[in-house]
């Protein structure tokens, strides 16, 4: 690749922006690229499933389909939250699923250049779940990747690690 082309690319990258839906979980601000979000279901109470792995938050009814939900709190070792939570309906390669979060915030427009991949000191499990972060003015926006949170890919025994094929 010639140097002028890469310079051009860098310039474009500097100007490019990403739209991210912000999600609050405990004290941390997380983000999901809006193109992965199909819908937001507010204050839902998923139907619990007996004997399901811990990260499964139950079933919700979404437009004629029954979706499995994933408890982000469980995956990140946060204590469970009482009461209704918001659900992001996400689309991954394997289909749709719901992600249970404390609350859904506004859509932020962040410059693509503000992105940094997962730091090396992050523990292995979180490295498997998180997808880097955007540097905001006074905080970090930790990115979530629907592909990594798809219940079909989470290992019931070791959430965070990819499910053994």
């Amino acid at each position: 690749m010639s140097s002028s082309a890469s310079a051009l690319q860098r310039k474009q990258k500097n100007e490019a922006v990403v739209e991210v839906c912000s999600v609050r979980l405990g004290k941390t601000l997380f983000g999901v690229p809006i193109q992965h979000i199909l819908e937001i279901i507010g204050s839902a109470r998923p139907q619990p499933i007996p004997l399901a792995p811990g990260f499964v938050g139950g079933l919700v009814h979404y437009r004629g389909d029954v979706l499995t939900t994933v408890r982000l709190r469980y995956l990140l070792d946060l204590p469970p939250l009482e009461g209704p939570q918001d659900i992001l309906v996400l689309e991954s390669a394997g289909g749709c699923f719901g992600l249970l979060v404390d609350s859904v915030g506004e859509v932020l427009t962040v410059p693509a250049a503000a992105y940094e991949p997962n730091p090396s000191i992050l523990d292995e499990r979180r490295r498997g779940l998180l997808a880097g972060a955007y540097k905001l003015k006074d905080s970090l926006l930790v990115m979530l990747d629907p592909e990594r949170l798809d219940p079909a890919r989470l290992d019931p025994a070791r959430p965070g690690a990819a499910r053994a094929a």
Binding site: Q47, I49, L51, V56, H61, T68, P151, A152, P156
Partner: peptide, 27 residues
């Protein structure tokens, strides 16, 4: 009958899920 995701099928007790007349979900 609505299909269940793989991780729930693996439990090995449920063949699917359904939405009941009162809008409740049932396995």
């Amino acid at each position: 009958v609505k299909p269940l995701s793989v991780v729930l099928k693996d439990i090995g007790l449920f063949s699917g899920a359904t939405v009941l007349g009162n809008a409740d979900l049932a396995l």
